[in-house]
């Protein structure tokens, strides 16, 4: 086990609004991290900072033992599946894949044959020559997963990767995650679907209002709290306990 990622005192504000406050954690190779938090808690911002999409922040990020800010090389070894799959969607999948290949220094044929194989697993290889903007949400997402993993990265950042994906493919995807873990790949998994996070992750990082409020393995977390599911822990830690009243209010106005 070697450390592949470490954040030290990372803070970030957009104007007046502080999005991240003094974030500290480190991740070893072969770990699957479940990175959770409410909407606007700062999850995507954290990922963007690590990826270098945002490079004005306080504190330090180390990837593979080296300071990430302003450097490029580490990016060849990380993969990213963004939450909203923005792509050059006028292109066909084929054209887009070979473009992505270029960015990672993989030649076209190899990139396409590799991606085609991966797409076949997800049952969308027929769409290789279709324009991406004609794809359904699930197909898009699958393509986004494929292109995010094309270059055999050592760390994967997955931001809500299962949106719109059918149940069978979700099953395959979970197996893939476990398999990659045994290959020593690190997975940084951010999602709102807590059941999946719970089942998949070795370790949970819970972010609330820009701060890490919980960090530990599922067992640790369970031991510390009396609650049994990640969902109830999530509610408790984020101080959310009036869901019943809110629901009642909604129903009351629904019936009126």
């Amino acid at each position: 086990m070697t450390e592949v990622l470490r954040l030290e005192h990372v803070s970030k504000s957009f104007g007046e609004k502080q999005v991240l406050r003094d974030i500290n954690f480190s991740v070893d190779s072969g770990e699957i991290i479940g990175y959770i938090g409410s909407n606007g808690a700062g999850k995507s911002t954290t990922i963007k900072i690590i990826l270098g999409l945002i490079d004005e922040y306080d504190g330090d990020v180390y990837v593979f033992g080296e300071k990430a800010k302003g450097t490029i090389d580490y990016k060849r070894r990380i993969g990213y599946v963004p939450e909203v799959s923005d792509m050059y969607d006028n292109l066909t999948a084929y054209e887009y894949i070979s473009f992505i290949g270029m960015l990672y220094g993989i030649d076209s044929e190899k990139a396409v044959s590799k991606a085609k194989e991966m797409m076949e697993v997800f049952g969308i290889s027929d769409a290789l020559y279709g324009r991406i903007h004609t794809f359904s949400k699930g197909m898009r997402q699958k393509l986004s997963i494929v292109t995010g993993m094309l270059h055999n990265p050592d760390i994967l950042f997955l931001d809500e990767p299962l949106g719109g994906i059918d149940a069978n493919s979700v099953l395959v995807f979970k197996e893939i995650m476990q398999g990659l873990k045994t290959m020593g790949k690190t997975i940084f998994y951010s999602s709102h679907i807590l059941e999946v996070v719970e089942r998949l992750s070795d370790r949970i990082l819970l972010l609330n209002a820009g701060e890490i409020v919980m960090d530990g393995t599922m067992e640790d977390v369970r031991k510390k709290r009396s609650d049994s599911t990640l969902e109830t822990i999530f509610n408790e830690v984020t101080g959310f306990n009036d869901h019943k009243e809110l629901a009642d209010r909604f129903i009351a106005s629904f019936m009126s």
């Binding site: 992505i100 960015l103 270059h151």
Partner: peptide
């Protein structure tokens, strides 16, 4: 310019540097 300009995040997240060839 492009109508799918948001896809450009990939230049940054991939660490691609060979702009001369590009």
């Amino acid at each position: 310019y492009s109508s799918a300009w948001k896809g450009a995040y990939i230049y940054y997240s991939s660490g691609f540097q060979n702009t001369k060839e590009l």
